[in-house]
Amino acid sequence: MDKLYQKKHQLWVSINFASFAINDEEIKSKLYDFAQIAFRHMKWIGSDVLERGDNYNYDRDLTLNKRKSVFEVINDLVNTTKETMTLYSNTILSQRLRTDDEYLLEYLSQILKDESNNKEITAFNTRREWLDKNLAQDQIDALTHFLFEELYKEYELILIYAYMQARTTELIQFNVFQDLIDESHFHLKSFGNMMAKMGILALPRELHEMTYIIKDLKQFVTDGIAEEEAAKEMCKELSAAIKDEELSKFFDFINYQESYHIELMQKLLK
């Protein structure tokens, strides 16, 4: 199994979760851009591995580091990036990966030079408060449950769709998978940031190969559509349970996005 793919996968997850954990909007946004670049790196490394007739998997060696300051988070990221870079070779792809990561390290060093960036990290304090909202305990519980379920699910879907996209030769399937991956990236980001805001940010659990090696695409899509239909109901229920207009509208918005996912998935059945 390809070690570079695993390291890049871990780096993608690490940058994403550093972005979610940090409250400063500018750093959050910039790190998220780097996470998206790292995901594209994963895709390219994966294609390269398959072209060589080799394979990769989604095994991970990551633990949740509940850091308390921005600099601790950034220093972790510096180390993870440097470890990944030791596996780059001299191919054109590796040169691209290296120059991107050198710029990431440059950006991280800029953050570390300014002591005013070293704010407290509240993403892991487990307070389960939404400071600018007045949510009752049962609403907080419902939201907590929802976010843990969905953070994992979005991560799972991104990786399953990416696995299938890398192996399809059908253009329509490739494009549908890309749309579904993009949609799940947005959901992962939204839910990750919400979890951090509530002090319950956690890594999604690792995917077992029984989850992402899909032997029957039709059955997988049929089951997925049924799951989306039921999920729409869950979103509606959460929207109704959360007595806050802004949050309710957000969950309605997610619910309407689910409707179009069903349309996209149906294209895979044609």
Binding site: F124, I200, R205
Partner: peptide, 28 residues
Amino acid sequence: DGMNAETLSHLMEPRNYGKLDKPSCIGV
């Protein structure tokens, strides 16, 4: 039983999650 501190701890950091390299047995 609801979202107590222990449940939250298992949610954030599930124990013994993953695979064993050389298990004696595997069940699904």
